[in-house]
Design a binder for these strands. Sequence first.
DNA 1: CTAAGACCTGGAGTGGACTCCAACGCAAAC
DNA 2: GTTTGCGTTGGAGTCCACTCCAGGTCTTAG
Lengths: 129, 129
Amino acid sequence: MATELTAAGRYSIGETARRTGFTMDTLRYYERVGLIDGVERGPTGQRRFSEDHLGWLDILKCLRDTGMPIEQMCRFAELVRTGDETIPARITLLTAHEQAVAKRIADLESQRAHINGKIDYYKSVAAGE
Amino acid sequence: MATELTAAGRYSIGETARRTGFTMDTLRYYERVGLIDGVERGPTGQRRFSEDHLGWLDILKCLRDTGMPIEQMCRFAELVRTGDETIPARITLLTAHEQAVAKRIADLESQRAHINGKIDYYKSVAAGE
DNA sequence: CTAAGACCTGGAGTGGACTCCAACGCAAAC
DNA sequence: GTTTGCGTTGGAGTCCACTCCAGGTCTTAG
């Protein structure tokens, strides 16, 4: 029963999928499009994700789940890869995204009120029967 | 200069698009899949949307923009078409959706906090340089 | 008379983000 | 020594919700 951990802090793609919530296919896809890099390989060519990768995947998940398109995530990944001199650019990118998320939340809130209004209307009709 | 309004409260597809924010193509598509019905036609076969349609489209927009899939909107449309005895079912459907929206908002809020944490981290790094 | 503008139809095409597949490579288990 | 499990690849396929297109019809303007 081989442990999923091959070396300290290095995870197989299956274990990484399990830990991050991405599928193995998605992890491979992300690597292909350049969202993940520096993935080492074991002696038989199998991917070994590091602890850092898990952290990075966590950020990607957050960005993806808040609606950032892959292309923009790629731009962010590129900045991270380039070095510390891109930190202001990263702040700009993330801030813009955060604003977009804030707007999305506000929109959802007003739409939610709209839906609740509709529910209340139906309830009043149902009660009036 | 023909007014866009052909008869009291009846709108051409172009005017309906302008008023609802859907494209003409989307309106035709929604009619095809059964999300809109009872659209009358003028003498030359052109669609005439009523005031009621505008109201309905407003609800559809709200549901769509909060992430309800077309299929579920169709189920809702079906209920509305069927009659008042489906009001409890409509309440159930909308309530479930409202819950989903509430969850989405909560998720976005925590993800937003995560993003802000990252921004703050970058700011501290930038300040420390 | 012609051209523009709004609309019609059926059906094909698009974009984004995966998701699946066939055929293969290893390694451990029985 | 073959089956099981986990992984590999390149490329094709899927899903959703539109979106676009060709070719046609009317009406109105110049």
